[in-house]
Amino acid sequence: MPPRAARAGTRTLVLGGIRSGKSHHAESILAEAAAVRYLATGPSPEGDDDWAARVHAHRSRRPAHWSTVETPDVAGQLRADAATATLVDDIGGWLTAAMDRVSAWTGGSVTAETDALRTAVDAYRGPLVLVSPEVGLTVVPATAAGRLFADELGTLNQRLAAVCDRVVLVIAGQPVAVKEIR
């Protein structure tokens, strides 16, 4: 399935496993947009050379005319400008940071944050592409924190898919349409 160029008002959720090609596919959807806002949700921790290399690879693929905003406040960014072509990479990183902020690992609730994100995505009127890891394609995590994250991300992915116009699953670099615009 070749990438379909994003149209105004089209919200696309791109799912896939680690190193599946989901980010590359998401970028290709917005490749022809005149201006793109790239919302990077993950931190750039110092001292982690592997992570720094991954961030560098993502940055080097982006066209020079794309703007990058490194932020955990995705919902706020989407509400502040609901028209510019936007790529959010990735929802798993965003969820981890949100769970940290509300102490979800020790009983806090991330519901308000996920509700705000879902509402902002639903209201978005420009081309929007969200990248998220797909959960449930492997063993159940062995730790309570791992299970909590998988449960929260699986629920969030379902909620985002419900308000997105398109959902694509990328496996081994091959995008498979899960949901198309009706």
Rank of each mutant, 00 (worst) to 15 (best):
M1V: 11
P2E: 14
A5H: 04
A6L: 05
R7A: 15
A8M: 04
A8W: 02
T10L: 07
R11A: 04
T12P: 02
L13K: 01
L15F: 08
L15D: 08
G16S: 06
G16Q: 03
S20L: 08
S20W: 02
G21L: 09
K22N: 09
K22Q: 11
H25C: 06
H25D: 09
H25E: 14
S28T: 09
A31L: 08
A33N: 04
A33R: 02
R37I: 00
Y38V: 02
T41H: 04
S44K: 13
S44P: 12
D48L: 06
D49L: 14
D50F: 12
W51M: 15
W51H: 10
A52H: 06
A57N: 12
R59Q: 12
R59M: 00
R59K: 05
S60L: 12
A64K: 05
S67R: 10
D73I: 04
A80F: 09
D81I: 06
A82I: 04
A83P: 02
T84K: 01
T84G: 00
T86E: 10
L87C: 04
L87N: 02
V88P: 03
G92Q: 05
G92P: 10
W94Y: 11
M99Y: 12
M99N: 11
M99Q: 13
M99W: 12
R101L: 12
S103N: 15
W105R: 04
T106R: 10
S109P: 07
V110R: 04
E113H: 13
E113A: 14
D115R: 09
L117Y: 07
A120Y: 05
A120D: 07
V121I: 10
V121S: 04
D122E: 15
Y124K: 02
R125C: 09
P127T: 03
V131C: 07
P133E: 14
P133C: 08
E134H: 05
V135H: 05
V135R: 02
G136W: 13
L137G: 14
P141Q: 06
A144I: 10
A144K: 11
G146F: 11
G146L: 12
R147M: 14
R147H: 13
L148N: 09
F149E: 14
A150Y: 08
A150S: 15
D151Y: 09
D151V: 09
E152V: 12
L153Y: 06
G154P: 11
L156I: 08
L156R: 03
Q158N: 01
R166S: 03
R166E: 14
V167R: 02
V168R: 01
V170R: 03
I171F: 09
G173I: 14
Q174F: 14
P175A: 07
A177W: 10
A177P: 07
I181Q: 15
